[in-house]
């Protein structure tokens, strides 16, 4: 069981075998996605027909590589824009919420704390649907009552941002609040004694202390937004973010260009995650 207890050979080997199979299971789907991005065939299926970079750089009749596929590139740009706004909004509100949870005392704090966790337990589809229905009702009302056409309340990118923000902000809040909890408040008191203003303390002591959690939650928010599908699908208008576009293409029958863009996604997120983990030892 644990290394200090005697285990029979059979048990040790059995466990090693099981764990290896488990990781094979875990990594197999990602590996085939990566491998078939380089297969010289029109379909991402075996047999292997030789190595090619066509699915990245070709621009011929039947093959359009990732870097020439304007619909794909546009959708990546759309996803970036959405993720940018979701990140900025979630992290800003997350910082405020962290102070609210860790520093402030007010009536109804317990209720507010619980409410802030609720978005995590609502299925993404329902989160999206409810926001869609609510926004449409307001837009319809504004149109009927005052003849106003509120375009941003119709399915489209502003609603996608709102839908993703509605739960990603909870994750940002929890991350930043966890770090603020460990902050030694005597540092602020010392600064206050030495005549610093509240604002100067926030700017020169508290926020720099929170910086790793702010950067970390920004990276997580960006990735979560970029990869979100459930909520996005419900709120999307005519501009497709990458995940929605990929879904549409997958239903039509996959082409290896999807493998190419997937590989790109995996590379970007492993770099981002790798950087987050590499940062950690330095802080400690």
């Amino acid at each position: 069981m644990i290394p200090s207890l005697p285990d029979s050979k059979l048990l040790t080997r059995g466990r090693a075998l099981y764990v290896s199979l488990f990781f094979l299971f875990l990594l197999m789907p990602l590996s085939v996605v990566a491998v078939f991005a380089f297969n010289n065939s029109l379909f991402p299926t075996p047999p292997w027909k030789g190595f090619t970079l066509d699915w990245f750089i070709a621009n011929t009749g039947d093959r359009t590589g990732l870097f020439f596929d304007s619909a794909l590139l546009t959708s990546i740009w759309v996803s970036c824009k959405v993720a940018f706004w979701v990140t900025v909004l979630s992290v800003s509100l997350g910082i405020g919420n962290a102070f609210l949870l860790e520093r402030a005392q007010f009536r109804g704090k317990g209720l507010l704390t619980t409410l802030m966790l609720v978005p995590l337990v609502i299925p993404g589809v329902i989160l999206g649907i409810s926001i869609l229905a609510f926004a449409s009702q307001i837009a319809n009302y504004a149109y009927d009552a005052w003849g106003l056409e509120l375009e941003w309340l119709r399915p489209g990118l502003p609603l996608v941002v709102a839908g993703q923000f509605s739960y990603i902000v909870t994750i940002a809040t929890l991350t930043i609040a966890a770090r603020l909890k460990r902050f030694d408040e005597s540092l602020e008191e010392a600064a206050l004694n030495l005549g610093a203003t509240r604002f100067a303390i926030l700017r020169t002591i508290t926020l720099p202390y929170l910086k790793p959690s702010i950067i970390g939650s920004a990276a997580v928010a960006f990735l979560l937004s970029f990869e979100n599908f459930n909520t996005t699908l419900m709120l999307v208008g005519s501009d497709n973010p990458l995940t929605v576009l990929m879904y549409g293409r997958m239903r039509e029958g996959a082409s290896p260009v999807l493998n190419a863009v997937s590989l790109l996604l995996m590379a970007v997120s492993s770099i981002a995650v790798g950087m987050m983990y590499l940062r950690k030892p330095k802080q400690a």
Binding site: P29, L30, V33, L223, F226, M250, N259, S269
Partner: peptide, 14 residues
């Protein structure tokens, strides 16, 4: 950290 779409695509190919 690979998107849900990527994982599903992997299973589709498999």
């Amino acid at each position: 950290w690979a998107s849900e779409l990527v994982r599903t695509l992997g299973w589709l190919i498999l």
